[in-house]
Amino acid sequence: MSEPATHDARAAQRLAWARAALHQPDAGLERASTDAGFRSYWRTVGTVPSRIVMDSPPGQEDVRPWLRIRDVLEAGGVRVPQVLARDVDTGFLLLEDLGGPTVAQVIDAGNADAHMAAAIAQLVRLQSIPLPADAPAFGEALLQRDAGLFEDWFVRRHLGIELDCGDSERLELAQRRLMDNALAQPRVPTHRDYMPRNLMPVDGGPAVLDFQDLVLGPVAYDPVSLLRDAFLSWPEPRVDGWLRDYHARAVAAGVPVPALDLFLRDADWCGVQRHLKILGIFARLHHRDGKPRYLADAPRFLAYLDAVVPKYRALDPLRELLDRTIKPAFAKVAA
């Protein structure tokens, strides 16, 4: 069957399933969001209230990991989308409609404290949940893969440079120290993309989205993902205040955070590791997937690295690499 025919057949199957699940033979569907891999989301038309159909085509997106993590989070008191009907074999779910804007679309300087307080409270709840014994861990293999994204896609493909022996050694040493720090931290449930664009401002929320890659990982990873976001920047004094607020809430909830000074260092280092990885991911989206808009945020990441890396002597190899090679090459590409 040709690709258009397959697409049409899936659309017809999706609509028929939605109408049956809703018990409304005249219901329609319209696209609710894009840029979600093979998974797609559709809002019902002609129903009150509206619902969302998640379509995870079998063989392309297995819906079971999403469902499993969703159920674990809900049992732990985390606000997640409610599942109203499910057909795992065909890859269809009927979900509540949480509305339109994400926290990223409504947050501003005036309301940021309230949104961050709610997001931090929800994160502490998430980090307190006991995960199943077979939950995947944020370990060496995942960190090595993340490290490779920066060199393969941002340095080689986007900047068009091959690092000389000295720079290769600098990057390898810095990445090793960042990985060792991440691996040494206490481990808690880690969303890995806990940021405003994956949070919905609803009652009892924010509701948490895009949680299917949750692992057992470093305790500082999600707080810094939220507060030093890939798409939003805040004045550093506000970020520091929010990190301290998170730490106090985590201590009160029994989350295994280290002492405040160590936690703030771990958050800085997790932020460096994460921003290097995201530079690689955004370069890959541009060069491989034809999505150039993400690289517009690259200067934000480099500014963050400039602000944080010089604070730590152990990260001097990375500072030297950035100053000697990465920033001059980026300036040429951006010119």
Rank of each mutant, 00 (worst) to 15 (best):
P136K: 11
D55G: 06
P186Y: 05
Y304T: 03
L131Y: 02
V257F: 06
A75K: 11
G77L: 03
L22R: 09
R244L: 02
V202C: 08
G46W: 05
E30A: 15
L295G: 02
P317N: 08
G59K: 01
S56Y: 01
S33N: 08
R313L: 15
L98D: 13
H286T: 05
L95Y: 14
A85D: 14
P189H: 00
G110F: 12
Y41M: 03
S225F: 04
I52F: 08
L126A: 08
L276E: 10
G254H: 08
R79M: 10
R197I: 00
D180R: 14
L73T: 02
F231S: 03
Q212D: 06
A119G: 11
G205W: 11
L232E: 00
K311N: 15
W242A: 03
I278L: 12
D297G: 00
F38A: 14
R31P: 06
A85V: 05
V53A: 10
D213Y: 03
I120C: 09
Q212F: 12
E151M: 05
L322G: 13
R249S: 10
L15C: 05
R313C: 08
A296W: 03
A307V: 07
P81M: 00
A250V: 05
D213S: 14
E140Q: 14
L232K: 02
G37Y: 07
L226N: 01
V333E: 12
R125L: 06
R86N: 13
T90V: 07
V78W: 01
Q127C: 00
D240N: 04
G110M: 01
K332P: 13
E172A: 15
R86W: 03
E30F: 13
L183N: 03
V53L: 12
K327S: 09
R228A: 05
I326P: 11
V53N: 11
L123V: 03
E140A: 14
R70T: 11
Q105D: 13
D222H: 10
L15N: 14
A298S: 13
A296N: 09
A141D: 11
G148F: 09
F138W: 01
G280A: 06
P223D: 01
D134Y: 06
A248H: 08
R244T: 08
G160R: 04
T34K: 12
V103I: 11
D108A: 05
D62F: 01
P218Q: 14
F150W: 02
V219S: 01
C165E: 15
P223S: 07
S33I: 02
D306A: 14
A121T: 10
I278H: 11
A112Q: 12
L131D: 09
K327L: 15
R176W: 12
L276A: 06
L295T: 13
P65L: 01
Y194A: 10
W234A: 00
E3A: 14
L209I: 08
I69F: 05
R156K: 15
L322T: 10
G110L: 02
P196N: 13
